[in-house]
Amino acid sequence: MNYKDADPEGSVCSQPTASQTGENFHQKKVTFARSKHVTKCSNCQLQDVQLKKMAEQIQNIEEQLISFQKQIDEKNQQNKKQKQKQEELLIELQIISEKHHQELINNGILQKQNIELRKEILKLEQDISKVECQNQEPLKRTSEQKFIESLIQMFMSFHQKVQFPTKPQLKQVWKWLKQIVSEYAILKQKELLLHK
C-alpha cells in the first residue's frame, strides 16, 4: 500500500477492486468523506454550545469576582476609615488623660501648698498672740479694741471664773454673743405672736 491509496480524511483504503475503479470509487470516497465531515460538525456544534455555556459561566464567574473585589475594596476602605477614627479617638483620649493627670498633679501640688500656707498662718497667729502677751507696754487703745475688751469682760461676768480661769479667746466670746442674740430673737418672735 502506498500513500496514494490513503483516504484524504486520514483513513486507509484497501486496494481498489474492479467495481471500485473509476467514478464509482471516487463517489464512494466523497460520500464517505462527507458523512465523516457531517459527523464531525455535529460534534463540533455540541462542543461549540458547550464552549459557549462554559464561556458564559466563566464570564458570570468573572463578573462575580469583580463585584466581590469591589465589595472587598469598599470594606477595606471602610476598615481604613474606622482605623483612622479609632486612632484619632485614641490620640484624643491620650491627650485628655494626660491633661487630667497633669491637673491631678497640679491639684496635689496646690493642696500641699494650701496645707503649708495654713500651717504658716497658724504659726503667724500664734506668734502674734505671743507677741501681744509679751508686749506689756500700754498702747493706745482703739475703739475696736475697747469694744472687744468690754465684750470679753461681759462674757467673764456672766460666767464663773472657775470655767475660764484665763482670758477667753475672742472666738468663744463671739459664739456666746451670737447664741444670746439668736435666743433673744426667738423670744421676741414668741412675744409678737402672743400679742396678736
Score class of each variant (00 low, 15 high):
L110D: 01
E98N: 14
K75A: 07
K112A: 08
I105M: 11
Q78E: 06
K81M: 02
Q102V: 01
Q111C: 05
K75T: 02
I72N: 04
K99G: 03
Q86S: 11
K99C: 07
Q102K: 04
H100F: 05
Q82T: 01
E120R: 14
L117F: 10
L139H: 11
L117P: 00
N76T: 04
I96Y: 08
L90K: 15
I109K: 15
Q134P: 00
N76S: 00
S97L: 15
S97T: 12
K70L: 10
Q134K: 09
I91T: 13
L122M: 10
Q136D: 05
S67Q: 14
L124I: 09
F68H: 13
I96W: 04
K75E: 02
S129C: 03
E137A: 09
I61V: 08
N114A: 14
K112G: 15
K112L: 11
Q71L: 05
Q94E: 13
E132T: 08
L110A: 02
H100K: 12
I109D: 08
Q94L: 10
E103T: 11
E98K: 15
L139D: 03
K119S: 03
Q64Y: 08
I95W: 05
L117H: 11
K99E: 14
L104G: 01
I115H: 05
N79Y: 02
I128N: 10
H101S: 15
K85H: 03
K80T: 01
H100T: 13
Q77E: 04
S129L: 14
K75H: 09
D127R: 12
L122V: 02
L124W: 00
Q82M: 09
L93D: 11
E103Q: 09
Q78Y: 02
Q59Y: 07
Q64C: 05
Q136E: 13
Q86A: 10
L93S: 10
E87N: 09
I115A: 10
Q134Y: 09
H100Q: 08
I96G: 00
Q94A: 09
G108W: 06
E63G: 06
K83F: 10
E92F: 10
E88F: 08
I115L: 14
E63C: 06
S129R: 14
Q126H: 08
E88S: 11
E98R: 14
Q111F: 10
